[in-house]
Computed example of a mutant assay.
Amino acid sequence: MPGRTQKKLVDSAPQRILADFKVGVDNVIFSVDTDQNRLLVLLVMRHEEPCIGQWSLPGTLVRQGESLEDAAYRVLSEKIRVENLYLEQLYTFGGPDRDPREASTSYGVRYLSVSHFALVRYVEAELIADGVSGIAWYPMHQVPKLAFDHNQILEYGYRRLRNKLEYSPVAFEVLPELFTLNDLYQLYTTVLGDNFSDYSNFRSRLLKLGFLQDTGVKVSRGAGRPATLYRFDANAFAPFKDKPLVFI
């Protein structure tokens, strides 16, 4: 009978123990060294188990009564002093066995990481070494094997950064208030690679969009012709804010 068959299936199902979770945040903090055209990520060396002595992303467990965003900002404030930054939630990583501490508990405590993506101005950033064995900016192509699943989190953050550059004005978060078009182009090539676009097409595309304000001021760098300084105009950009705009 249908009713008995259903009851038998339910009764034979194994008992499932609900997972007990601890929640942390891990911040992928990027910056661009525009002088040397390097994309950098901030790493800290762990000073306690698990993974003591390994480089990792700056992170913390969320405190009681603390929001995820507040925890992410707390990590930033404990590791770096900077006036201007961009921060957004990235992704939640919660696969089994992503943290060695899960195996040391008899009740199977799971460790979730709600990762965040941050972008800061390199010349303004002051690193704070309190409470860590080491802290450093690492060029993306020199990042070592990181603790936990932080290489995976970093790769996810790098993809987000590339997408952000193509579809949002996030680049202006790390440029000075006044910049040349070549400054902007160099930032894009540093993150996206030299072959993403030639300078002529990049310049034409950006100027047509109309949210770069010509200041009328020119600056001389090297032997070339003086270059015009521009300013990002947030009001002129407002009509594009919720549109699938492609900058490049």
Rank of each mutant, 00 (worst) to 15 (best):
G53C: 07
V132I: 13
S56I: 03
V75E: 01
V219R: 00
Q213C: 08
L39S: 06
G53K: 10
D26T: 08
V120Q: 05
S204Q: 08
N195Y: 10
E166N: 07
T180P: 00
L161Y: 01
A234R: 13
C51A: 15
D11F: 12
K218P: 01
F179R: 00
K164W: 04
S168G: 06
F211Y: 12
P239V: 09
F93H: 08
G131H: 06
S115Y: 03
N235T: 12
S77T: 13
F93A: 11
M45A: 14
V10T: 14
Q213K: 15
E102Q: 10
L154F: 05
R225P: 02
L187E: 00
A234S: 15
V191G: 01
P14C: 09
Q89H: 09
D33E: 08
F179L: 00
T189K: 08
V123Y: 09
P50G: 13
E78L: 13
D11S: 14
V114P: 02
E48T: 15
K241V: 10
T190L: 04
L9T: 11
L207T: 08
M1W: 05
L76F: 06
S12P: 02
C51G: 13
D194Y: 10
R160E: 09
P96M: 03
P144E: 02
H116E: 03
A147Q: 06
R160C: 04
A103N: 05
